[in-house]
Nucleic acid binder design. Structure first.
Lengths: 155, 155
DNA sequence: GTAGCTGCAAACAATTTGCACACCG
DNA sequence: CGGTGTGCAAATTGTTTGCAGCTAC
């Protein structure tokens, strides 16, 4: 599974995403923090370049993959098949990062997202799976909608 | 670059799978019926060819898109980003196709799937969305696991 | 000084599209 | 005979990989 917890007590240090602390890696994490919601790798890359950061698309993809692999970032796939990333763990690391399985409510317009946890959904998935005799259940749930600011209240 | 969608002139016709009854269309539907679970377009295409049917990849994609568009087929996206298709509605069309929103429990091994409906999940999605002030909610839920035949009960 | 990090460009795979022709009706 | 479904191959697009140089440590 993905519940890898090596450190007992999280030090107040920076996230060891990679062995070396490079400017590119920091720039990427920085922009990921600024982003309110999910962004595509291409989008992140473009914005990084716009900010004047010298970084390559390859590096963006590589860091994104690393972040996702270690659970520091969430990945959702749009209907287009594009991968959208977003920092997931708690940056300040005061307590515990998102160790729990949760999902996201993503705005179709701005990509702004809200983390939501649905224990009942998990339970439901387990139940229907068990009813069908399926084991080793995993699920992907993505909720899309329009955030308050982009909701067209006036018809 | 940007996703420019120019094809907006879609003739609003009746829910016909295809205008003409061609051998290729029948072959595709036939193999879709045989398939117990979700299959990728490439896979479907390969099997069609294996059976001796003369059909092009393009045609497979086109029919799959049509079927999905009219709701006769379901589409799920694997983590790889590949699109998997499966006949969803009632083939003979005697009653009514799956007009209701439902999800699938797909086997990781054989792709065999079971249709499941989770009214509570729908309700949950609506609720958390409303709580966050989101509107026009839509969601994608895919449950993966191992079917009874592929479950490794004996460790 | 080394080794991991970076980045350009080519490789890659899935999917779409243009265009000419065959086939359905 | 007409229109459109078909199919090949090229174009597109998002992502990965090879390799040579740079940089952090």
């Amino acid at each position: 599974m993905t519940a890898e917890r090596t450190g007992t007590s999280a030090p107040a240090g920076p996230p060891s995403t990679r062995l070396r602390n490079t400017r590119q890696a920091e720039a990427l994490e920085s922009i990921l923090r600024e982003a309110d919601g999910f962004r595509t790798a291409q989008d992140l890359f473009a914005e990084l370049r716009r900010r004047g950061d010298r970084i390559g698309l390859t590096t963006v993809y590589r860091h994104l993959a690393t972040l996702a692999e270690q659970g520091s970032a969430d990945v959702v796939h749009t209907a287009d098949g594009e991968s959208q990333y977003r920092l997931c763990g708690v940056p300040a690391g005061t307590g515990k990062p998102a160790e729990d399985h949760h999902h996201h409510l993503v705005c179709r317009q701005c990509g702004r997202s809200v983390e939501v946890s649905g224990p009942e959904v998990e339970a439901w998935a387990e139940r229907v799976a068990a009813a069908a005799g399926y084991t080793e259940i995993s699920h992907t749930l993505e909720v899309f909608g329009l955030c308050p600011e982009h909701s067209s209240t006036a018809g």
